[in-house]
C-alpha cells in the first residue's frame, strides 16, 4: 500500500562532491527551463495542497517554513532512519506533491515527541502537521493497519487493551480496584464522528 519512492542508495561521499574536478564549468544555459508553463505542469502537482494542510488544526504556520532543517537535525527518528525527514516532507507539501506525501510510509514514522515543534524558529507546528497529513491520508482511504487495529479496539472496548476477568482478579489480588470491562459510550462517539466508515 505504501510507496517508498525515496532512494535508499548511499549519498555521495564529501570527497566526491567537493573534489575540484567535480565542479562543473559555468554555463549560460540551464539544461531544463526553470519556469514550468501552465499546460506543462505535471498532473500530480496539487497547487492547493499546502493550503489544505494549512487549514487543518495546527497547520496554519506551515507556510512560514524557510527550510532551515532544525526539525530534522533534532529528530530522534531521522537520527537513525533516513526514510523520515520532516524538512523534506514539509518541502514536498509546499510544492504540492500530494500523492507522494499521502501515499508514503514516512508520514507514519513520526514518533510524536514534539522536539521539532518546540524548536522550530518559524513556529511551524511540525508534529501537528504530521498528524494533519495522516488525517488527510485516512480521508483518502489510506489507513495504516497498526493505527486501524488500535482504533477498532478502542471502539469495541473503550481501551487499547482488553480487561478480562483474569486481569480484574489480578488487580484485586494486588489491592487495586476492578475496572469496567467495556465502555459502550465510545461506540456512540465513533458513530457521531463517522469514524467507522473511515476505518473501512
Amino acid at each position: 500500500m505504501f510507496v517508498n519512492f525515496i532512494s535508499k542508495s548511499a549519498p555521495p561521499a564529501f570527497s566526491q562532491i567537493f573534489a575540484p574536478k567535480a565542479i562543473p564549468e559555468m554555463t549560460t544555459q540551464l539544461a531544463t527551463p526553470l519556469i514550468i508553463e501552465e499546460n506543462q505542469e505535471p498532473e500530480h502537482i496539487d497547487r492547493d495542497f499546502a493550503l489544505k494542510v494549512a487549514q487543518r488544526a495546527g497547520g496554519r504556520q506551515l507556510l512560514r517554513c524557510f527550510a532551515c532543517g532544525t526539525c530534522t537535525a533534532g529528530c530522534p527518528v531521522a537520527e537513525i532512519d533516513e526514510r523520515y525527514n520532516p524538512r523534506r516532507i514539509i518541502r514536498m507539501v509546499l510544492l504540492g506533491l500530494k500523492n507522494e506525501v499521502l501515499r508514503s510510509e514516512f508520514i507514519w514514522l513520526c514518533a510524536g515527541c514534539y522536539t521539532c515543534q518546540e524548536r522550530c524558529p518559524q513556529g511551524v507546528r511540525v508534529a501537528e502537521v504530521m498528524r494533519a497529513l495522516r488525517n488527510l491520508a485516512v480521508e483518502e482511504g489510506i489507513v495504516h493497519p497498526a493505527f486501524k487495529a488500535q482504533a477498532e479496539l478502542i471502539r469495541n472496548m473503550g481501551r487499547i487493551y482488553e480487561i478480562e476477568d483474569f486481569d480484574n482478579k489480578k488487580r484485586v489480588r494486588a489491592g487495586l480496584p476492578e475496572l469496567r470491562k467495556n465502555i459502550e459510550d465510545i461506540k456512540t462517539l465513533f458513530e457521531r464522528q463517522k469514524l467507522n466508515e473511515r476505518l473501512g
Binding site: N135, V138, F147, K148, Q193
Partner: peptide, 10 residues
C-alpha cells in the same frame, strides 16, 4: 491519543 493520527477531532 491513539486515534489522533486517524482523526484529530475524534
Amino acid at each position: 491519543y491513539p486515534i489522533a493520527s486517524l482523526d484529530a477531532r475524534a
